[in-house]
Design a protein around this nucleic acid. Sequence first.
DNA 1: TTGTAAGCGTTATCAC
DNA 2: GTGATAACGCTTACAA
Lengths: 344, 344
Amino acid sequence: MTEPMKKSRQPTINDVARDAGVSKKTVSRVINRSPLLNEETRQKVLEVIAGLGYVPNPQARALALRRNFLIGLVHDNPNAQTVLNVQRGILEALRETDFELIVRPVDRGSPTMLDDVGAFLERQRPFGVVLLPPISENDALAKLCTSIGCRYVRMGSARLDDDAHMVASNDREAVKEAVTFLLSMGHKRIGLVQGPHGFRSAAERRAGFEEALKDADIPLPRSLIADGNYTFQSGLLAGERLLDLLPRPTAILCSNDEMAAGVLHIARQRGLDVPGDLSIVGFDDTPTAAHIWPPLTTVRWPVASMARSAALKLVGGLDGEAVEEPSMFLSTLIRRASAAPPKA
Amino acid sequence: MTEPMKKSRQPTINDVARDAGVSKKTVSRVINRSPLLNEETRQKVLEVIAGLGYVPNPQARALALRRNFLIGLVHDNPNAQTVLNVQRGILEALRETDFELIVRPVDRGSPTMLDDVGAFLERQRPFGVVLLPPISENDALAKLCTSIGCRYVRMGSARLDDDAHMVASNDREAVKEAVTFLLSMGHKRIGLVQGPHGFRSAAERRAGFEEALKDADIPLPRSLIADGNYTFQSGLLAGERLLDLLPRPTAILCSNDEMAAGVLHIARQRGLDVPGDLSIVGFDDTPTAAHIWPPLTTVRWPVASMARSAALKLVGGLDGEAVEEPSMFLSTLIRRASAAPPKA
DNA sequence: TTGTAAGCGTTATCAC
DNA sequence: GTGATAACGCTTACAA
């Protein structure tokens, strides 16, 4: 029992092997759940492992296996809650696995962005990466991952890639539903604050907006569409633009909640009653959406679930089982007080 | 030039050594910036490295060095923006180093929390961890890190540990300043929505609140203090409690912005004019603070800078230089429209 | 079912 | 200054 000179360092596979009276390979088999193992041997080894408090060294395993246990999250999404929800979803999928999550925010718009991500992938060689919008919409980035040999899954607002490499919410349908909801309440003059050019989400949401109006045979003058860039500030500007119109729109759909908050701000400044004089609908269901006054009707996309599936697509199928994770996710319209039938 | 059977795998240190006509140890010296190296040799090796696109394998380095290049972020902070700001700050400090950030949200309140973190530390053996409040206030956790032999730095609202293991904002002073500001505008009846019991930040902020009133010789009846738990919901309840009082407080200080938003909500519901009838002050300067109406006067603590220093305390001093990172950080009162002199 | 030997890509030791 | 050689802790051949 009394080992001579018990070193205080972490026990290694050798210690376990010695104490259990087996070879390291056998211990390795136990760790890796090899099926061809005498049950007695397994038990004995497990006991020694527990007794010693042995934990396999991930770096050593990574070296021997020529792959590591890191999943990267590459993102440039400005919405903190979204990013955290994604992290939560990924970690949920990674629980009970040996994988860890490493995060890598990148600077969208930086001319060296692709190089930066490339350097990160080359250096760390993560087992796989989850790409968040809007950067996930960048096809060059996906190609880069492929060329480097790094698995990836893109999150997005529409089918961006084949099922193995993407999870998406159907933003177009979701917005269409929201607008149809407004129409059903009697709104006829509905404005849109759209997201920035080059963003797939912005394009999809606009498309859904237009489709809904078209289906209802309601004309859409260009003046009812204001530009935004997903910031509160741009929502303020867009709100001023749209509320200057005569006749005023009775409802405004915003491509995200931040901008909706901006529009609400302007409406209040002008003494408009929301939703009496103006209904407002957002997109994202950020925490703020529920906390502003009146609470914002908005669209919630299942970020965490999507992220979870994304991660499972990456790490799943390692045990040979096919990965049958969904690729498309439904968003839900969250009805709150900011949208109601127009007053008169 | 034409190597026979160029394998498509990543180049290793051996490839570099062979091509440069030196030993692997020399290449290793170049990588690790060893000072005792012939400049010519170094240049030649660097050329080959660049030519080959060689990148050292972090896992192999970790194994050989018996330490890895991972900094963990352990957090249970509910504020997404805060967590992301921390991540940003840490990564800023880690840029240009070989370290990566791995994140580990934990479930505060789970009875197995300490075990969970312990398992994480044992398994991954990160080089160091940054602990976010409120979990960072847990002394048992700090002890656990020490016993496992994992470096740590705690972020907090007050001195929680010695300088090497902590960075803190001075919440007490910050709140004191905010309350003094309200007093200077003529408020005499000021309510407090405090944070949950057991949170150091809540205690510090309350202490600052009380000190300011005491310094001004203003009595503080217990009824002017309402309990909250840092959620919007609890802000609603606390707001109702305080605004039921007669005479009504003319100002309310909230221990965070979420709760301030809740109080604002109630004030609006009751038709109160903010700030005319009621001034509101928050704490945190979340994005929401600037987007609600009226924009919220609040206290901003330099999260990212603190996180940056925390990370530097962890990885600094590796090159022998002493780490001279600050431990205390000043918060700033952000004056917005939600606080003004009382109407009458 | 289990063990032996070799190797994963790097760094430390200690000669030269 | 530089280079053999032996670690580091694990896994994959391939034997037994």
